[in-house]
Amino acid sequence: MDQANQTPAVDKEGRTYWKANIRLIAWSLAIWALVSFGFGILLRPLLKGIEIGGTDLGFWFAQQGSILVFLALIFFYAWRMNKLDRFYGVDEE
């Protein structure tokens, strides 16, 4: 490990950076769980009324929709975090 040019470990800025990251992760995982465990499995009966191609929306979320949302989440997180890195000055130059 190369820790020579490390910013001090627990400075105030570092803590806000980590808090912002945790908040972002929490929101993203909430959406992650909602589309898969929620729409795809547990909440499927609630979506029964919305028809799509011979079945209901829950079936689509379980077989395709959740995958598309997962993709969007990862790219959104990467984009947002790389911005946060620069904002708090912790990016790799």
Binding site: A4, N5, Q6, T7, V90, D91, E92
Partner: peptide
């Protein structure tokens, strides 16, 4: 604890 802090920040 320092190691964990360092893993959490991309810089360096």
């Amino acid at each position: 604890k320092d190691l964990v802090e360092s893993v959490r920040t991309p810089r360096g």
